[in-house]
Nucleic acid binder design. Sequence first.
DNA 1: ACAAAATATGATGGATTCGTCACATATTTG
DNA 2: CAAATATGTGACGAATCCATCATATTTTGT
Lengths: 212, 212
Amino acid sequence: MPGTAQVNVNPRKIPRQARAQATVEAIIVATAQLLTEQGFVNLTTARVAERAGVSIGSLYQYFPNKQGLAAAVVDHYSDEVLARFTAMVRARPGKTLVDTVDAMIGFALVSHPHEPEMHRALNDLAPRIGREEKTRAISRGMAKVIETELERHRQEISPDLDLADAAAMIETVLETVAHRAIQRHPVRVGADGLIGQCRRLIIGYLRSPSPS
Amino acid sequence: MPGTAQVNVNPRKIPRQARAQATVEAIIVATAQLLTEQGFVNLTTARVAERAGVSIGSLYQYFPNKQGLAAAVVDHYSDEVLARFTAMVRARPGKTLVDTVDAMIGFALVSHPHEPEMHRALNDLAPRIGREEKTRAISRGMAKVIETELERHRQEISPDLDLADAAAMIETVLETVAHRAIQRHPVRVGADGLIGQCRRLIIGYLRSPSPS
DNA sequence: ACAAAATATGATGGATTCGTCACATATTTG
DNA sequence: CAAATATGTGACGAATCCATCATATTTTGT
């Protein structure tokens, strides 16, 4: 595995006082910013401390090393993305299957309008800091949410399609589309644009019988 | 953009004698190996030179810096992948649409049996060394090959589907599947496995009319 | 109010890395 | 074969970075 200079990445100690929690929070935010601005390679502990308005000593009081900073960011923002996706889907009851799929695509495309680079940073980063399992867990979480939604529209979906498999597939496709959207700005909308094509891909998949 | 410490990445001089060409080749191979083994972060010019059996001075005679090494690897292997994909598709005349799609999926999944990490390295790397355009060109090249193949089976494809759009979409999906296969070893085969689901996804997409 | 615990500081040692340069060796050219 | 050109070498300067630790300051508990 690349970048497998496996090091301990766990927090050194948990902040007890409010002041310390603010310090840790500032460090995580600063790390996230610098990560998206400069990438992991150009991330230095000194720059993080400076951006966070904290001394380098304080930083090392809570984080064991550079990878620890990145790991904290991955954990922090991964959870947030899953929570937002879950909330978004659950907040749309009684819609049609196509509407639901559109909403999911929309989330993948524009949910992070100001943080597409963060998305990329997280994906690129996780494998390099022993956080693959974390990102996989997030994927499984999203798939579970999707599966629940698919069950609601069971009658519109090809009967021989396993919903768990389908949900995993859709999650993968959404992931991709987000990735591609980041690479190929701006996103073309409309029926022929990325959104339209993606909708067609997913709906066709759900409705069609197994190919002969 | 992350990692945008844009530096010149162009070769310093081109090797004229055969001996020098061997040196450059050895350096590129060594870089590729270390990249897949340790990742870009842990790549050092000294290690590359050592692995290549070449002095550090020789390395810097042809490559301006670390990024230059990576850029050379990206260029080298990207071209190779496109060439292999093109050859593979062209070598399968007269097959059905499903067979063709299966072949493409198979290529994405197992074409690089011993170099899945290379694949990841290339994808993770390119954006960080000013080689986004290169990878995009490869994607366009593969899409063009796919489009040509789709035209052959025009009658099996939904008439209102633009083949260029479809080819781009399929290329994206294949990219994803490869990516996911790397993350989730081993690849489950069979109708319910990743391959089967992926076939179903693409075929359903091609055959179905635009969703209402 | 006072001791104990928690938190913050930043100069600094040690290690690593990049990339150059003066020089040696090999190959080509005329 | 001798000059010119191409290639190869590796010690080393300069820069950077990680991470610690002794010390100072703040907060908490009693």
